[in-house]
Amino acid sequence: MKWLWLALLLVLAPAAVAQEAAVAPPSLAAELSVNRVEVTTAFSGSEILVFGATERLIGPEGDEVVVLVTGPETSMIVRQKVSVMGFWINGASARFNRVPSYWALASTRPVPAMLDRVERSELRLGLDQLPLVQLGAQGPTFRLALADLQQDAGLWVDRDRPIQVSGGRLFHARLPLPATVAHGIYQVQVMLVRDRRVVARQELRLDVVRTGTAAWIADIAREQPVLYGIACIILAAMAGWIGSVVFRRN
């Protein structure tokens, strides 16, 4: 009888292993080259390097990869310039809340070709999918102006260049980090797309911190705004006085 049970176990074991492999989640491994970026007074910009590997081949007939990086949320005001008697003055304005200070997207193919609009909206994969809260003046013009300003500053990046793939399963993406980037916690999402669905996702954390003199000045400006303003006025006055003395002697 023992031999019968052993034979039955040997027959059923491969089937059980195959079934377990079939229900196992898709494999995705990703990492950042650095988890901390230090912003000093000499900081001129950097880049975010995301790399990883997948279990299946990457390509049109296989899996696809999407990388989304978002920075701390902030509020921004967009004002419309109006010409009055030859002078440009501020007109209507719109305030946007929950604006990502940094937003960057990279993918192996254009995202609309990989995912439907509903899932793109849920995952905020696209500048047109950002749920910005608009107060004050209404209309799409202000939202478009906000997008143009952020893109010109390099703070919103919709990467046309796809993620680079090596060996069929290895991938990496380089996303620019401008000198004007805000400090805080950045969320990096790496998503695996299969059959027009996100089947695996990995979240990574990037810390952008101010250090040295930049951190000291930022702390004073935030915690002692009156003292910071007075110091700026005194420094500006001293610079003007020194400049006038130097040019007067020349």
Rank of each mutant, 00 (worst) to 15 (best):
V39Q: 12
I234Q: 03
Q187D: 08
R196P: 00
R169V: 15
Q134M: 13
M76V: 12
E73R: 13
I220H: 05
A214G: 04
E64G: 10
A7M: 12
A214M: 12
V23Q: 07
R143K: 14
L146S: 05
I230R: 08
W216E: 11
I89M: 13
F171E: 04
A94I: 01
M76Q: 11
V209W: 03
I234P: 03
L192E: 06
L8W: 09
D207M: 02
Q151S: 14
F51D: 06
R95F: 02
Q189E: 15
A231D: 01
V11I: 14
A239Y: 02
L135H: 14
P131Q: 03
R143I: 07
N90T: 12
D152K: 15
R117M: 05
M238I: 14
R109F: 08
P131C: 02
Q80R: 15
V208D: 03
A147K: 09
S244I: 06
L28S: 11
A173E: 09
E223C: 02
T141S: 06
A182W: 02
Y102A: 14
G126F: 10
R36Y: 01
R201F: 03
I163H: 06
A182C: 01
G71D: 13
C232D: 01
E122K: 13
R201W: 02
R197Q: 12
G59M: 02
G229E: 13
G86S: 05
L6S: 11
I233Y: 06
P110T: 00
F142K: 09
R95D: 03
R248P: 01
A231G: 07
R159K: 07
P72F: 10
S244V: 05
L175A: 08
A42D: 08
G59I: 02
E119T: 15
A113R: 13
S107C: 05
R143E: 15
D207N: 03
Q129W: 01
I220L: 12
L204D: 09
Y102H: 15
F43D: 07
A239P: 00
G86A: 07
E55L: 06
L115N: 09
V17K: 05
L6K: 04
A22V: 00
M191R: 13
A106E: 14
Y228R: 02
E31G: 13
T70D: 05
